[in-house]
Design a protein around this nucleic acid. Structure first.
Lengths: 277, 277
DNA sequence: ACGCCCTGTCCATATTATGAGAAATACACC
DNA sequence: GGTGTATTTCTCATAATATGGACAGGGCGT
């Protein structure tokens, strides 16, 4: 080894920190606990390995999370879990602008009139999230979406309605983003989604003809904000194909439109704003 | 003012801290955002007032929460919201030991056989939490519980089943705790709950005869763990009183028992342990 | 123009979180 | 019962981190 003077090891520490190391770490731990591969709980060892944190630090973090009820520890097994309070937090996160509360009667009314299953979706970034659902009485149920499910904008009637009625520039940007996110998925290709959007705009509603699930169809409309170009949410109905043919489909759309308009007005009155991301 | 030498102001700081100030603060902020009175979003000012934190500190905390997606800020209005990821976290918290996933087919089967509404509950501390629900086809629905709802142990069929089949000492402790928590509620009085527990043990199932909602009845059974004295969860059925009379009620209980036994076996096989608190 | 309030950023400071290690505790395997 | 291993808690010196006061840029009403 030539004894060259070692170049003074530059601190090279690119802290890049914004002064919130511990919070960041704590939230990461929560994310770990939420990852579905560990639904059956995580041991301390699991957490230590997966997080890469120092033991002492991890104990301290877990202690804090536990003290606030965000994490629970099973006494017998010693496994760590997300605290049950996340149920409450989860509901709260869905209730932006009281959207869910205000929308519920509309969902119920639509489900009663149509006997099919109704969904309420909102936009989050380049995704659509199903926020609420109301099952209809018709025995063959089309339960494509569970509450909390994410779909890229454009996939499914609700997600397509959210996308299609955005300002053109924003819409095109999102379509491009999703095409990049899912390069291997032909359904997300720019041409394909653009075609769906065009048709939705022409017909005034989003129509999903079995793209997600064979033999299941759905229609969706935007919930208008100040203007129709600023949708606050989307309402959609799913049913088996037979119940979605031309004459009935128009009726369903009319019902959706009516409720969406009323809901939109109520939301605007309460100062709701379209969600971006 | 006598110029007495000021007694050296003892630091008197009782930090009492466990070295997790910032995490504690961050979690408090999340709680604030989740509080329902602010469902329509909180301005920075709101948060500052409600949290009592220094502005800079609050900015940093919110920045960290936002960077991790736990908090979102609405661009137009500047309002802060819980991030939509809480939906996912909420689902995850319900899926302990994959309970929800494993239980779902059982719920569906019970709902199909009985046409009534079925609930899955677990214990959390001195409460029961409704973790999942499956609606039956019968047109008059008894939707006493929403997913995520908490009830003190003993109130309602599911919560009573969870309580009644615990080891006696534990049960009595919990009954006493809840009586103290709700001193003004006669339904939670020790004598009352004890009587319900006794009957449940004698008959082998929990029966709620309109205590929660007039004209609505429910039956519940524990999902057994290693032994029946270590219930992992509870299954219950709610219906209008007419559908809960003697002959039918026995059938319902039999169906519940069968599914609960199967579910319990599956859970035990996966190493599930009863939840405490 | 002026004051007032709200919003956001900077930066010196000491308070706080950190992590190594030791000590205590539980647990398994003979 | 005894030995070894894993788990959990505690202590403590240290530096890195989070803190909060000060400052600066609007917006708005008067």
């Amino acid at each position: 080894m030539p004894s060259r003077t070692l170049p003074p090891p530059p601190p090279a520490k690119v802290p890049q920190r914004e002064g919130t190391q511990s919070i960041e770490r704590a939230l990461r731990v929560l994310r770990l606990l939420a990852s579905t591969n560990y639904a059956s709980g995580m041991s301390f060892q699991d957490l230590e390995d997966a997080s890469g944190l120092n033991r002492s630090t991890l104990y301290r973090i877990l202690g804090a999370l536990r003290a606030e009820g965000f994490v629970e520890r099973h006494p017998a097994s010693g496994l760590f879990f997300l605290g049950m309070d996340f149920l409450a937090l989860g509901s709260a996160s869905m209730n932006r602008f009281n959207l869910r509360e205000l929308a519920r009667p509309h969902l119920v009314r639509i489900a009663e009139q149509t006997e099919d299953t109704v969904f309420l979706s909102i936009r989050s970034g380049a995704d659509s999230i199903c926020v609420d659902r109301q099952e209809g009485a018709f025995p063959i149920k089309a339960l494509t979406l569970n509450i909390g499910d994410r779909r890229p904008l454009g996939i499914g009637a609700g997600a397509l309605a959210l996308l299609a009625f955005l300002p053109r520039a924003e819409m095109e940007d999102l379509v491009a983003r999703n095409a990049r996110r899912f390069p291997s998925n032909p359904a997300m290709a720019v041409e394909n989604v653009t075609a769906l959007v065009r048709r939705s705009r022409e017909e005034g509603y989003a129509f999903n003809d079995g793209q997600v699930l064979k033999s299941m169809c759905a229609v969706g409309v935007p919930v208008p904000g100040q203007t129709r170009r600023q949708p606050l949410a989307a309402l959609s109905i799913a049913a088996i194909s037979e119940r979605m043919r031309a004459p009935r489909r128009a009726r369903l759309v009319a019902i959706l439109e009516e409720e969406a308009k009323a809901l939109g007005a109520a939301l605007v009155a309460r100062g709701a704003q379209p969600l971006g991301g």
